[in-house]
């Protein structure tokens, strides 16, 4: 799992976009496409290279109920494993 103080950002060559055909947020990277659910899209939107995992969880809690910081950390770890996101710290 990713540390709560870690600061994630989209990797070089990764683009976040909205796909009207599928009515979904997506991330596009060299050899793939991830279709995101609402939570993942919100997390990706906050992977800005400035906000920590803890900060992302706090911001999400303003819009969503029941946000757990550990769930955010686990999602970030999955995005790191897919090489969509990099973390500092």
């Amino acid at each position: 799992m990713t540390a709560l103080s870690a600061v994630p950002r989209l990797r070089r060559g990764v683009k976040a976009a909205y796909d009207e055909t599928r009515d979904s947020h997506v991330v596009l990277f060299p050899e793939g496409v991830l279709v995101l659910n609402e939570t993942a899209a919100a997390v990706i939107g906050l992977c800005d290279g400035r906000t920590s995992v803890e900060g992302i969880a706090r911001r999400l809690a303003e819009d969503f109920d029941g946000v757990e910081v550990d769930d955010v950390a686990e999602l970030v770890a999955r995005l790191v494993a897919r090489r969509v996101v990099d973390v500092d710290g």
């Binding site: 976009a17 796909d19 055909t21 599928r22 997506v26 596009l28 496409v33």
Partner: peptide, 9 residues
């Protein structure tokens, strides 16, 4: 046409 069909890459 590809984009309208759903192509993203």
């Amino acid at each position: 046409q590809a984009r309208a069909l759903g192509v993203l890459q």
